[in-house]
Structure formats: structure tokens, C-alpha cells
Design a protein around this nucleic acid. Structure first.
Lengths: 109, 109
DNA sequence: ATCGGTTATCGTAGATATACGATCAATGCA
DNA sequence: TGCATTGATCGTATATCTACGATAACCGAT
């Protein structure tokens, strides 16, 4: 793509886009749902729930971690992942705030 | 990616992911914001607002259109784009519903 | 120290996404 | 009819994403 131009946009637009991007794959939606419903927390259990290899699941978990949606702490030989509720709440607010500003003007063509 | 496995996930998870994907680029967030604030509707004006070429903007508009977030109707030689409020409202509800189900269980590690 | 189990990372292949110039199709106007 | 304007599409280059096997790193227990 030659050179990305994402940096040419305002920070708040980049923020919304970054949140959306982290949630733009069904596997990551499934992981977040699974973690939230507390059916699983250990990485191995999550791998068992998804139709993906361990390596791929680990990669998706990394994306969610970098977006600060989840966090993982080592528990002996395993890793326990869980939702970062503080961050997720903020994300929800940011999304909602943006969607709200849209509807405020609602009077298009 | 060899073969995509997105189809192996439940429809509602695919739906959330698809919404997120359509909003996963700052240019598209900017386009939606711009359209909602009614500062522009004609494609040419949108191109002038963004730091992208006409071809690229047209491509982003196409993505938003396919996600049913916006619609465009020909107005003489121009094309007038506008927010599909019905669909956007539904999207907002779907997103909010998903986020709500997450917090219901909120009691992780 | 070695072994078995767990997870992250590396390397890689193929699929998509991003970006743009060039071109095409459609429209309005001279 | 011919021309300028507008916007979609094509072709293409590069970047990023998705997926997995293989391997490395780590831990607990023997």
C-alpha cells in the first residue's frame, strides 16, 4: 500500500479505528465473549474452544492484549487471561460517545 | 492465510466482527463523521476533506456502502452520499447488546 | 538435570487491505 | 456532437493479516 496514511488523521479517529480493528475478527469476538462468560481463562481452554491452532489463538490473544482489552498473568506453567474491565468500559464509552455525536446532527440528504 | 476460518464462527460473532472491520480504518471513521455532521455529502467534497486520493476515498466509500452504513444516490454528474441511519442505529444496538452481555458476567480472575 | 506439559515466538505461505495513477462511463453543457 | 467534470473501476505495488508447523522458552515435578 505504498505508505500508510493512518497517521494523517486526528487522534480520536485513530482511536476509534484502532478499537474497531482489534475487534474485527470473529475469533477475537469469540475470545472476548468466552473470557467474559468466564467459561475459560487458561489459554489451553481457549484453544480447545476455537477451531484454530494454538499458535493462531496465541496470536489473536496478543492482538487483544496490545489493544488493552485483555490481560494475562502467568500461573505456573499456564497463562490465565482475563478481560481488562477498566479498559473495556472505557472502550465502550468511547464507542458510544462517537456514535452519539453522529446522531446529534442526524439530518442528512 | 491459507484458508480463512471466519466461517467457522457463529453468525452473531461474525456480524460484530464485520461491523468492526468496516470501521477499522481512520479514513472511514472520518467519512462517517463528516457525513453525519452534514458538512459534506458529495463525493468530491469528501475527497477534499481527506488526505487521500479520489480513487482511495472511493474505495473506502465502497466498503462503508457494502457494510450498509452509508448509501449514495446519483445527483446529476455527482454522487450524494449519506448515512444510512436505520442501519447505523441497528449497528449501534448490536454493538451495545454485545458489550452489555459481556458485562453481565463480569467476574473474571 | 531431565522430562512432560503449556504458551510464545519464528518462519512462511497465501489472502486481504491500502493507496494511487490511469482509464472508463455517465452526465451536463456548449 | 464534442468537451469538461465527476466518480467508479482496473491494474498494480506494497503492507498487513491470517493461519499453521516447528521450535524455543518456561515451569513444575520427578
Amino acid at each position: 500500500m505504498a505508505i500508510t496514511k493512518k497517521d494523517h488523521f486526528p487522534a480520536h479517529q485513530q482511536r476509534i479505528a484502532a478499537i474497531a480493528k482489534a475487534l474485527s475478527h470473529p475469533a477475537r469476538i469469540a475470545l472476548v465473549s468466552e473470557l467474559a462468560s468466564q467459561n475459560a481463562c487458561v489459554c489451553g481452554d481457549l484453544v480447545a474452544e476455537l477451531p484454530l491452532s494454538q499458535a493462531t489463538v496465541s496470536q489473536h490473544l496478543k492482538v487483544l492484549k496490545e489493544a488493552d482489552i485483555i490481560s494475562g498473568e502467568t500461573d505456573g506453567p499456564r497463562v490465565c487471561y482475563c478481560i481488562n474491565w477498566t479498559s473495556l468500559t472505557q472502550i465502550r464509552q468511547d464507542l458510544d460517545a462517537w456514535l452519539e455525536t453522529l446522531t446529534e446532527h442526524q439530518e442528512c440528504c
